[in-house]
Design a protein around this nucleic acid. Structure first.
Length: 853
RNA sequence: GCCCGAGUGGCGGAAUGGCAGACGCGGCGGUCUCAAAAACCGCUGUCCACAAGACAUGCGGGUUCGAAUCCCGCCUCGGGCACCA
């Protein structure tokens, strides 16, 4: 017998698989399809354990499904545009492409060493013009559909990255990539109108039964739908006379409208300057506007909710009761949500309450809890201002309306009776209507960086902003750029100057590039038709392979990449290119790989475990098996090299066991059949019976577990089968082994095939050499099983008395319930003496519970 | 503050209404060996000298013949959102 030597077999088989084009996708077969995909990596250096975990999971799913008889699409590519490449180029005085492609080669070599079964002919590299050309084309389709907008508004600017960021890329006021504090700037930028799809993106989360609940929750949170109403207040002129100039607010609490005692505009509200122009209020208000710009999002995220406001000198009229209320400007109102103006109801809103307290504004109790002592005092009152309210907090939940005219006595709260009645009245009067607001903002996609996909637009002094004609795509990134000395696309003369495609006059090219997340929003569709020269993909091909059946990647993309991809899919569907609504049917978010103390591995901590080192020590198969075995895939995994060594031992043991089962182990046998004599129970025939039963049970269990991505328990079950095989070999002498030779050979074959997705090199070597099969195990069929054969003919049942196990009985699997009951009562007679047996519940195959009193 | 998830041996974890701790790591003892390593065998939740037994799935209640699992109320940890009206 040949010893298990991963260093020898792994490179040899990898070469053999490549030569035989084993992983090439079969495009024409009529088998059912599976699209198995892992999030493509950013080529930032060599791969780390997180990648190994992510891609080991995907490879098991892909290999398992090939054996199950599916046509499997399992591609790999690189998310190759982005800032790290540019920073590396500046540091090394070279070009981002040099660094990027070198890293791609490194990572690709590591993937091959891990034995991942990708169809390398389908590789998509995001910075390749063959790919980004179609990213530009898609951008123009979005533009045609009115989903591209260029507009001036306050944006998030990262001073570290020297570019703007999308809302999704700002985490607690800091840049997602470099952690710099993000600043607000007023800039003209390009947007994708993802908000047009807000409702559908929210609704379709319900379709995603194969997604983790927490991811769907996070997306729903991010989209943030609120049902409420728009209410129009009439502005008074400088002398306090009502005009027909209306200012609109959004509110979810129209029920509290009678409690509105002031009105607040965000500092960025467009009309602020106009309202205070030339008055004594002008300076303090404009000072406040300036000061509020300096409050950073980081300060806000840290919970600094000190509110600042100034009176504008103006008033508005409350449409529900004609009351005149003062207009303030305050920094607690968010400018780009709703209308940027709010009605303030201190009684019903905690923020308004705090503001009213600080600036001594009236608090009108209009909603009270049922046992509130004020309830009695206010009976029959209207608009009684109680500045000395006995509470410290606003009553912002449900309650009963008081001092609210005809609505007094109704229930108040979100979606309450009172709210419905007041909105109806406003609608009647033409002063309000139902409105739904979303927290989701449009996706800011332009970036002021070189290493990205150029936005295909031209600025013409005559014609304005015009798209580059489709036949002129792609707009190529210029290769000759000296980033180290500060050159940018905007300073690149040759790139900038062009002619207008409309009028033919001189024009300037757009110099912003697209957010890298545009690249990752559709790469999975390009994999279905990666070499297409005429379109991003052929619709028939995309519709055949898509949606992705199993997508695997990190939880950090719960909002960013996954939301953008869902958006792209829906737009491309509306363009007529796709016939489905959602790109990823099943999503698995794998947990992080941490060091033995539970800390994140990082270079600065010096606790990084290099995959390469582990492959050298134990082989790629052991690394794969270990990572899948040690924890459920979605949980974090604490690195423990003893565990890896244990899994390696398991592979060595089964390697020898397979030879033993086949009777070809020779000197290397684990259990010498000649040495078997006075071993303890079980008898060889019983061990053989158990082994046969286990063979069927375990195949059933592993099949089920792989289908449900429970890799850790699948591997545990394979270990159980190996243990049963070991128990048989330990007690069987040569003659007994000969009698069970067929079954033993079958068990050996089953063990090898069950482990083939997990340990592909190990399995293929055994399959072809020890088991003597022609061709690769990865073209073999998944073992079948007979559930009947997995059943024992005699089973042990626990006998409980009032829920406590008091005895055990052995019964035939086919025994009638009454016989079991009788046998059980007999077994626990000591416990029933002198007591009443109320009933005995028989759970077939498990236990009997006798209830006595 | 709002929303979601998780708490089980020394450790990673298993069991989603039916014998808690599968499988593995670690530990202890043994076989082999001059010895060690490797390999193989056995034991390994806690209390108790052993047995018997009792106690054990974050805490407190409840439903049930039976609860780690379902329900109610807490505690702790992790994650998301957050001045979004």
């Amino acid at each position: 017998m040949k010893e298990y030597n991963p260093r020898e077999i792994e490179p040899r088989l990898q070469q053999a698989w490549a030569d035989a084009e084993l992983d090439k996708v079969n495009e024409s077969a009529d088998k059912p399809k599976k699209y198995v995909l892992e999030m493509f990596p950013y080529p930032s250096g060599d791969i780390h354990m997180g990648h190994v975990r992510n891609y080991s999971i995907g490879d098991v799913v892909a290999r398992y499904n090939r054996m199950r008889g599916f046509d499997v699409l399992h591609p790999m590519g690189w998310d190759a545009f982005g800032l790290p490449a540019e920073n590396a180029a500046i540091k090394r005085n070279s070009h981002p492409a040099t660094w990027t492609y070198a890293n791609i080669e490194t990572q690709k070599a590591s993937f091959k060493r891990m034995g991942f079964s990708y169809d390398w002919d389908r590789t998509v590299v995001a910075c390749d013009p063959e790919y980004y050309r179609w990213g530009q084309w898609i951008f123009e389709q979005f533009w045609k559909r009115g989903l591209v907008e260029r507009r001036n508004s306050p944006v998030n600017w990262c001073p570290g990255c020297q570019t703007v960021l999308a809302n999704e890329q700002v985490i607690e006021g800091r840049c997602w990539r470099c952690d710099s504090e993000v600043e607000k700037r007023d800039l003209t930028q390009w947007y994708f109108k993802i908000t047009d799809y807000a409702q559908e993106l929210l609704d379709d989360l319900d379709q995603l039964e194969g997604w983790p609940e927490r991811v769907k929750q996070q997306q729903a949170n991010w989209i943030g739908r609120s049902e409420g109403a728009e209410v129009q207040f009439a502005l008074c002129d400088a002398d306090g006379n009502e005009t027909d100039d209306l200012i609109t607010v959004f509110t979810t609490r129209a029920d509290t409208l009678f409690g509105c005692s002031f009105f607040v505009l965000a500092p960025e509200y467009p009309r602020v300057a106009e309202l205070v122009a030339g008055t004594e209020y002008e300076k303090p208000v404009l000072d406040l506007v300036e000061a509020s710009k300096k409050v950073t999002a980081v300060q806000r995220a840290q919970g600094d909710h000190e509110k600042h406001g100034e009176f504008t000198g103006r008033y508005v009229v409350n449409p529900i009761n004609g009351q005149k209320v003062p207009v303030w400007v305050a920094d607690y109102v968010v400018a780009d949500y709703g209308t940027g103006a709010v009605m303030a109801v201190p009684c019903g809103d905690q923020r308004d309450f705090e503001f009213a307290r600080k600036y001594n504004l009236p608090i009108i109790p209009i909603i009270l809890g049922d046992d509130d002592p004020l309830m009695e005092q206010l009976a029959g009152e209207q608009n009684r201002v109680v500045t000395e309210v006995p509470w410290e907090e606003a009553m912002d939940a449900e309650g009963t309306l008081v001092q609210s005219g005809p609505y007094t006595g109704m229930r108040g709260g979100k979606h309450s009776e009172g709210e419905a009645a007041i909105v109806a009245a406003l609608e009647e009067a033409g002063r309000g209507k139902r409105k739904v607001e979303f927290r989701l903002r449009d996706w800011l996609i332009s970036r002021q960086r070189y290493w990205g996909n150029p936005i295909p637009a031209i600025h013409c002094p005559e014609c304005g902003v015009v798209p580059v004609p489709e036949e002129d795509l792609p707009v190529l990134l210029p290769k000759d750029i000296d980033l180290a000395s500060g050159e940018t696309l905007a300073s690149h003369e040759e790139f900038c100057s062009c002619t207008c495609p409309k009028c033919g006059g001189p024009a300037k090219r757009e110099t912003d590039t697209m957010d890298t997340f545009t690249c990752s929003s559709w790469y999975y569709m390009r994999y279905t038709d990666p070499h297409n020269q005429d379109a991003p993909f052929d619709s028939a091909k995309a519709n055949r392979w898509m949606p992705v059946d199993q997508y695997i990647g990190g939880i950090e993309h719960a909002i960013l990449h996954l939301l953008y991809s869902r958006f792209y899919t829906k737009v491309l569907r509306d363009c007529g290119l796709l016939n489905f609504d959602e790109p990823f049917t099943n999503l698995l978010c794998q947990g992080m790989v941490l060091d033995e103390h539970g800390d994140v591995m990082s270079k600065s901590k010096g606790n990084v475990i290099a995959p390469e080192t582990m492959i050298e020590r134990y082989g790629a198969d052991a690394v794969r098996a270990y990572i899948l075995f040690m924890a459920p895939p979605e949980k974090e995994l604490l690195w423990n090299e003893d565990g890896l060594a244990g899994v390696h031992r398991f592979l060595v043991r089964v390697w020898r066991q397979v030879h033993d089962l086949l009777g070809i182990a020779g000197e290397e046998t684990l259990f010498d059949p000649e040495a078997v004599n006075d071993k303890k129970a079980p008898a060889p025939a019983d061990a053989a019976k158990t082994l046969l039963r286990e063979r069927h049970r375990v195949v059933g269990k592993v099949t089920d577990d792989f289908d449900r991505t429970n890799f850790n328990t699948a591997i545990a079950a394979i270990m159980e089968l190996s243990n049963a095989a070991g128990a048989f070999l330990r007690v069987a002498n040569a003659e007994q082994r000969a009698a069970y030779a067929d079954m033993s050979a079958e068990v050996a074959s089953v063990l090898v095939r069950l482990l083939a997705p997990v340990a592909p090199h190990w399995a293929d070597e055994l399959w072809q050499t020890a088991l003597g099969n022609e061709g690769s195990v990865h073209r073999a069929e998944w073992p079948t099983f007979d559930p009947e054969a997995a059943k024992a003919d005699e089973v042990e049942l626990a006998v409980q008395v009032n829920g406590k196990v008091r005895a055990r009985i052995n019964v035939a699997a086919s025994a009638a319930e009454d016989d079991i009951r009788a046998q059980a009562l007999e077994a626990i007679s000591a416990y029933t003496e002198g007591k009443n047996v109320l009933k005995a519940i028989v759970i077939p195959g498990r236990l009997v519970n006798v209830v006595v009193k």
